[in-house]
Amino acid sequence: MNDKIKIQNIDLFYGEFQALKNVNMDIKENEITAFIGPSGCGKSTLLKSLNRMNDLIEGVKIKGKILLDKVDIYKDMDPTVLRRRVGMVFQKPNPFPMSIYENVAYGPKTHGIKQKSKLDEIVEKSLRSAAMWDEVKDRLKKSALGLSGGQQQRLCIARAFSVNPEVILLDEPTSALDPISTMKIEDLLIEIKKNYTIVIVTHNMQQATRISDKTAFFLHGEIIEFDETEKLFSIPKNKKTEDYITGRFG
């Protein structure tokens, strides 16, 4: 399969503090890639640098290259274009304080779609892809803030679909959710990976083994090991990886 994203020699600094150290990784199309590791090791930082959400933080410096379909996203791509192609779902569900319909229609409207029938179509398709059309089709005009946490998170996934991205980044998308909502979202990710490239940060190793094809183990801003999920969890090459996945990490 194709390399959708190539990360080459990335160093990232928050002011003086180096959060990523010489990170290299190829992310394949139509696969789910998981980032695991103790908190503070740089998983979110790397994820956010894939759609340049780091640009918003004052004092961030990045060295190295990230290529999306062979194009340097920091040199040769406008961030708004990049973020349309590389969507993001955040740790805490963050639907806008608007109706369910408006939440999903916001993205396409941003990119110039005005026709009501076209918007209706996108809203329905996105909500169907997020497996929640039947749940909400009778209350599209109601506020999204009235949904449960799990529904809000799936709405955010639907919102990410709405601009027809190629890559979807998810930062611990189920950490605030109950087991049933978590399962729904995991099933959904497996279902949609045939059409998307998915990168997910997870605090939960079982989740990584359940859904991902590849897993990267991070420690102190470095990638210690990056391999097929099955291999990484059954026969880790690195002692630190082994310690972490067996819970002997200290």
Binding site: M53, R83, F90, N94, F96, Y106
Partner: peptide, 13 residues
């Protein structure tokens, strides 16, 4: 909340 801004910017707005 910043998360609303992130949500919007994250969609390419």
């Amino acid at each position: 909340p910043d998360m609303y801004r992130e949500g919007s910017l994250g969609l390419g707005a």
